[in-house]
């Protein structure tokens, strides 16, 4: 399958990329291409031009700034999966990355590309919501930080504006007493999440102080299960409590439905996977 013809522009710096996007407002940004190229091959996307940001050095790498981990947008899923730093600082992300696609896909796909694409069944959005991540976007008007809760607007739609490029992802360092887990029911062919649930819990003396739950795959966009989060605050995360809090936690209304998984089945999976993720996270929090 060939994509429709397009013009190709390669940027070697962020400034060059921003300039190219200004000159070619209809262009799409190409990073690893593992979300965009499949869409172009199916001709669901026919951009007249691509701006390739894949070689911009300043968009690569993982570093720590106090209590925050800064991940460059071009960091591949493989780099996240195997990063010793992330395993220490924010181990939820390597766990999530290991679930994305398959190893060759993880060698090319990038965290920034996946987030900017906002596939409703992508894995990272659930983690970003659970972590309370912040996305840094740079555009013609300068740079701004966008909270994960405000980032995912709908099917393949984010808060990024035309001309803006997602440059960094900021996530908190997960400290002592914090547990995390990602549970996923993958589609057997595509490996995308039919439902995926990421959980971060903060536990003090056996009591849950804060739970954050991000769910992907179920709805047109990733969302937080705030009703469950609230139900668990101040409680012990034992099986009975978690079961009670997750039962019928999501209504099938408004969920995605396809021949593989109906909305009702997705709602059921939300409850099952949230329960599993919470119990595993609670165990890790100690």
């Amino acid at each position: 399958m060939y994509p429709a013809s397009f013009n190709y522009y390669r940027a070697m710096t962020l400034q060059e990329a921003l300039n190219l996007l200004r000159q070619h407002p209809e262009a799409k940004v190409l990073a690893g291409g593992h979300s965009l190229i499949p869409l172009m091959k199916l001709r669901l996307a026919n951009p007249p031009a691509l701006v390739d940001i894949g070689r911009i050095a300043e968009l690569k790498g993982i570093r720590r700034a106090d209590g925050t981990v800064v991940i460059g947008a071009l960091t591949t899923h493989r780099e996240v999966e195997f990063s010793e730093e992330l395993k220490q600082w924010c181990p939820l992300l390597p766990e999530v990355a290991a679930h994305i696609g398959d190893p060759p896909v993880r060698n090319m796909g990038t965290i920034g590309g996946s987030l900017a694409h906002a596939d409703p069944a992508a894995d990272y959005p659930a983690a970003m919501l659970a972590l309370g991540a912040t996305m840094k976007a740079v555009g013609p008007g300068g740079e701004r930080m966008i909270a994960a809760d405000e980032f995912f607007l709908g099917m393949l739609t984010t808060a990024l504006q035309p001309g803006e490029i997602l440059t960094e992802v900021h996530v908190p360092v997960l400290g002592k007493g914090t547990g995390w887990a990602y549970e996923k029911f993958p589609h057997p062919a595509s490996r995308y999440a039919v439902v995926g649930v990421a959980v971060v819990v903060r536990v003090e003396n056996g009591i849950c102080r804060e739970a954050r739950i991000g769910i992907t795959g179920a709805a047109p966009r990733a969302f937080r299960a705030t009703n469950v989060e609230q139900a668990l605050a101040g409680k012990r995360l034992d099986e009975a409590t978690v079961r009670a809090a997750t039962e019928n936690m999501v209504s099938p209304e408004g969920l995605l439905s396809d021949p593989f998984a109906s909305a009702a089945y997705r709602a059921h999976l939300c409850a099952v996977l949230t329960r599993r993720a919470l119990l595993r996270a609670a165990e890790r929090a100690g």
Binding site: Y8, G33, H34
Partner: peptide, 18 residues
């Protein structure tokens, strides 16, 4: 699948220009 700079990639999802 081929190796690109030593890493396995799916060459049906990579542009030659990349």
């Amino acid at each position: 699948v081929v190796l690109m700079d030593g890493k396995a990639v799916k060459s049906c999802t990579v542009f030659a220009v990349q």
